[in-house]
Simulated assay, not measured.
Amino acid sequence: MKILITFTLVMLGIFANAQNKRFTYEYQFVPDSTNVSDLKNEVMNLDVSESGSKFYSYTVYNSDSLMKIDVEKQMAAGGMLNLKSNNRRGLVRYAVTKKYPKYEVFLQNRILRDQYNVSEERPIVWKITSEKLKVGEWMTQKAETDFAGRHWYAWFTTDIPIQDGPYKFHGLPGLMVKMEDQTQSHRFTLKAVKNISSIPKDVFGANEISVNAKQYSKILKDYENDPARGFKQAQMGGAIMVTKDGQSSNIKDQEASIKEKIKKDNNKIELD
């Protein structure tokens, strides 16, 4: 109880005057373990308020926001909708939310037309070392943990007394400024800190399906085994599949394309 009260008082001090915080990270990752030279980059936001945090791709969120504006303009003009898939930017389609002070963790992700809210029940157990490192303007201390099939190194700073970090990670006595797994195929580095008026509420919609990790794993496996199921259902409803250049496309071509993408996305942040 004493720890909880102390944490609450610290959080109230940080968020005095209703100033929410945005921590912007550079996320570098290798999606295909057979092609380690193909390093991807994504701009990720960790938006923190007194009640919790939301971690999501700024690249995806900004792209989707621009697409939404385009759709509204086209509808207002009464013209035909022109939704080009190549206008979408960003590779990290999921988001992670945490609820304070218990740090309940949830992964939000879309599979086909459905949005899922997946509860995370695995604890994160840290080993804090004596090693220090200056990362940017922050003096940090190193910690280690094993999570979801990877060994992780984290550098946290007590100068920012928020027990949060990128993705699902939390529980250190300060914000995680840098994180990377042992293979160095996933790395998060803090690049900027700013005050924000509010956390975006429409990163994911309200119509989410709540599932546990086991249920979500089965849903994901079913999708990977039959990724064209959504196209098949749409075609049964009379929809016509087209490619980016406007040419018609059949289900087999769509399925082959998606399976090839899944095959190359074999180095996910969670291995088990």
Rank of each mutant, 00 (worst) to 15 (best):
M44Q: 14
E131K: 02
D272E: 04
I160R: 00
N250P: 09
I14E: 00
L112T: 03
A234T: 10
F204N: 01
V135A: 03
D202P: 00
T140Y: 01
T189K: 11
L107D: 09
V177F: 01
M241C: 09
Y167S: 02
P227I: 05
I128A: 09
V118T: 09
G78W: 14
F156V: 05
K21W: 12
Y153A: 04
S63Y: 12
A18R: 06
V30A: 04
T145L: 00
A192H: 13
V118A: 07
A234Q: 03
I240D: 12
T140V: 03
L46T: 06
G165L: 04
Y61D: 07
A18L: 04
Q184T: 11
E121M: 05
L112Y: 02
K261E: 08
E137K: 10
Q74I: 14
I111E: 01
N82S: 13
V135W: 04
T145K: 02
K168Q: 09
L66D: 13
K73W: 03
T24W: 03
Y167W: 13
S210L: 06
I199H: 04
Q19I: 11
V71C: 03
R89Q: 13
F23G: 03
V135G: 09
N225R: 05
P173H: 00
S85P: 03
K142G: 06
K221W: 06
P166H: 02
K214A: 15
K221D: 13
K221C: 10
N109F: 07
K84M: 08
G230I: 04
E137W: 12
T97C: 04
F204I: 02
L190I: 07
K142F: 05
A143L: 02
R88S: 15
K132V: 09
N267H: 05
R88D: 06
H186Q: 01
N207V: 05
D253R: 14
E180L: 14
K68N: 11
Q28P: 14
T97W: 06
S37P: 06
R110T: 15
V96L: 07
W155I: 06
Y58R: 10
S37M: 09
E137I: 12
V193E: 13
N250F: 05
S85L: 10
E260H: 07
E224D: 13
M67S: 14
G79F: 09
Q19T: 08
T129A: 12
F23H: 03
T59D: 12
K2F: 02
D265N: 15
S63D: 11
I262Y: 06
F204K: 00
N20F: 10
W126H: 00
L9C: 13
M67F: 11
V60L: 01
M241V: 15
Y223L: 01
R229M: 12
Y167M: 06
P101Q: 09
I269W: 10
K259I: 15
R93Y: 15
T158C: 08
R93T: 12
V125Q: 04
P123F: 05
T59V: 03
S63F: 11
